[in-house]
Design a protein around this nucleic acid. Sequence first.
DNA 1: CGGATATATGCATACAGTTGCATATCAAGC
DNA 2: GCTTGATATGCAACTGTATGCATATATCCG
Lengths: 201, 201
Amino acid sequence: MSLKHAILVLLEKKPGSGYDLSQRFKRSIGYFWNASHQQIYQELKKLSQEQWVEFEVQAQAERPDRKHYRISAAGRSALKAWLHEPAKPERLNSELLVKIYAAYLADPTALLPDLDRRIAAHREKLDEYLGHEPFYLDKRGKASRKQSLMHLTLRYGIRYEWNWIEWLTEVRALLVDEQAPAKPMLETLIRASSRKTLAKR
Amino acid sequence: MSLKHAILVLLEKKPGSGYDLSQRFKRSIGYFWNASHQQIYQELKKLSQEQWVEFEVQAQAERPDRKHYRISAAGRSALKAWLHEPAKPERLNSELLVKIYAAYLADPTALLPDLDRRIAAHREKLDEYLGHEPFYLDKRGKASRKQSLMHLTLRYGIRYEWNWIEWLTEVRALLVDEQAPAKPMLETLIRASSRKTLAKR
DNA sequence: CGGATATATGCATACAGTTGCATATCAAGC
DNA sequence: GCTTGATATGCAACTGTATGCATATATCCG
């Protein structure tokens, strides 16, 4: 499980409450990890039982009390140890892909609402992420390794969203026009690049 | 949950045993859905309780008995109904990305074994998927909608693996050379393409 | 004045997915 | 002869994630 570690990383960068963390999951690192507030609160409880985080209650006038969490020394070394452990292979399970694979069973337009909703959602995220990038591009050259790594994770998010948009647009074209889509440029690139890497080996 | 529906789709295409299904998950549609044999057997049990699938036991000499499953009429209409329901938004959680985000805490080479393992795994899958594609390309023009849809899901798999390879290679370069990677061509394409779509709206 | 949204935390339950184990046969390789 | 791997199915226990509910205050908007 790495929700534990995702929380530890966030707290290592900056302490905060469960609520703060859920905002940060939504607003800043959503391009590689998502967590609901319930998961976060439960995980923080476990983490403080393990002594990997500490907290102090902050009473607030006219606002509910906050538990201000920060990572402990034990938590910090657990994080470092985790970085040296092998990661388990990613597992891809996409409901939408299953639907598209099965789409021949229904009429061609049945999936259009889903497709359009998803394309719009990915466009929105892409815009958001592209809006974050100038921050990193501005300080090129003088960027620290930490900054460069954060930038790369953002670029993963950009690639991911863009990939979905391109592909879903192809699928949409097939369902609407009832014909195979024109071969997009990227496909050619993929094949060219992969032939190169294949030749190299 | 769509493991249920993934199984129904597979049985709709071709009946078979739990073992057969686990092979098909591994070998043919792994580019969008993965399931372990335990999950499959449990799900098949539930599906036959719901009367969405039927089975007959086939005794085999010198091999364990098989349960040969096929989809029922009720299962087929459940599948069709499901196609018209909205899909829930995809949720992205990548352990490796969390590690890369946190990599500044350890020495730069700590993640290299993970990266190399993952790059090799994605290359292997990419090769496998590229090997499947000629089958679809050969019958272009005379391909049915069903075939085209299957082809598109394969292309998703190809894009997915390629995307990982490209990006992981950038990350590796940063960790090894301790410098920001050269801006790859794709990144430029992404930005160009997105500006177009932004302008269109 | 009512409804939506933001702040702030949490419990209980259900469902999904993983891990470890168990059983049984046969073929291939060392 | 022994191990490994493929065929074939399954239980039990555990971990992880999702869903629904509960509470409390304040602000913003119409």
